[in-house]
Computed example of a mutant assay.
Amino acid sequence: MKKLDGAELWAVVKANAYGHGAIPVARAALEVGASALCVATLNEGLSLRNVMPGERIIVMGPLSPHDIAIAREAKLECVAHTDEMVELLAAQVDFHLKINTGLNRWGIESPPVTSNGRLVGVMSQFATDGDPDITSRQLAAFLDVSANSTGAVRHIANSCAAWLFPETQLDAVRSGCTLVGFPPTPDVDFGIRPTLRWTSYLAQVRRVSPGETIGYEGSYRVPKNTIMGLIPVGYADGFNVNLVGTHVLVGDARAQVVSVYMDAMCVILDRKLPTGTPVTLVGDGITFADHAKNAAIDSWEISAGLVDDARRTLRRIVD
């Protein structure tokens, strides 16, 4: 909030708040002054509405004509990405018009000539994080196209733009990754801290001889006498198979991941440890950024895949 110069903070909690838990993150954001919650799908919006009956919730993704009636009943704001959707939304729900200014994903090229009905916002989205030239061109295009949208909230800035280019803040800022402790670009020190800790335990330990293999199709060949540990977390829980080669913390020592299965992963230990030894997948110096660098993806591509199912994982919210 200290970085916003009069603009409203709108918390983006789509994809279960980047895997961190939409409801607890939404509540935390509202407590520090967020005035709206942004999600990607109708079902995400309905889940929030069930526990937050009075909050402003904006569904940013596309809707079917059938969805509009459900959104209207739930008092959700919607986003029009096409001229046809403008006509459908304008008479039924409060809506935002998405303008394509260069990302070339969702959005129309310019506002329609017809009546905008219940238009409450005009929005766009930057195509880069941190490029001043592209950001400047997109902002200029957006300001030009939205100049006649009297009374509508104008919003284009995400976390990175709001931080690096204050002129993009306009009426509201849609902030997602920084709310959960992810720096939006690795090139800048944003001074923020991770908000999620992911732990498990050592479930089995065995010695493996030189020349033996670990994993399906012999994916890892053991070069010397090795102590292998098995951790009951796998890609069905969100630990992506592309994270082979990354490190986790077993007890107080880093251990390399050499194989990832649906329900488990194998790591190489530096010594024999008892089963039940705590394992830290994220936390205590092990970060999503570390894992992401190993897999050449973004941190939130990993966190968004974390399973939020009590039948597989236990989540505990810590203030």
Rank of each mutant, 00 (worst) to 15 (best):
I286V: 15
L269N: 02
H291C: 08
K293R: 15
R271N: 06
D298L: 13
D270E: 15
S303E: 07
T287N: 06
W300R: 08
T277V: 07
A304L: 02
G285S: 10
G305A: 05
D290V: 06
G283N: 08
T280Q: 08
A292S: 11
T287F: 04
G283R: 04
T277L: 02
V279N: 01
G283I: 09
F288Y: 15
I297M: 14
S299K: 03
L273P: 03
A296Q: 15
G305M: 03
A296S: 14
D270Q: 14
D290L: 12
D298V: 07
T287V: 04
A292V: 07
L269F: 01
G285P: 11
D290R: 14
D284G: 07
S299Q: 10
L281G: 06
A296W: 15
A304I: 01
L273A: 09
V279H: 02
I297P: 13
V282C: 14
F288W: 15
N294H: 11
A304P: 00
L273G: 00
T280G: 08
R271I: 00
N294I: 05
D284C: 13
A289W: 04
K293T: 12
G276A: 04
R271T: 01
N294C: 15
F288L: 15
L269M: 03
G283S: 11
R271L: 01
K293V: 12
D298G: 13
A292Y: 05
L273H: 01
A292F: 09
A292N: 06
T280R: 12
A295C: 04
P278K: 00
V279A: 09
K293I: 10
V279T: 07
I286M: 13
G283F: 03
G283D: 11
A296V: 13
T280H: 09
T287D: 03
T287P: 02
I302N: 13
V282I: 15
W300G: 02
K272Y: 03
I297D: 12
P278N: 01
W300D: 14
G305T: 05
A296P: 06
H291E: 07
A304F: 00
D284A: 13
L269I: 02
I302L: 15
K293E: 14
V282H: 08
T287G: 07
A296K: 11
G285M: 13
L273W: 00
L273I: 00
V279M: 09
T280M: 10
I302Q: 05
T277W: 02
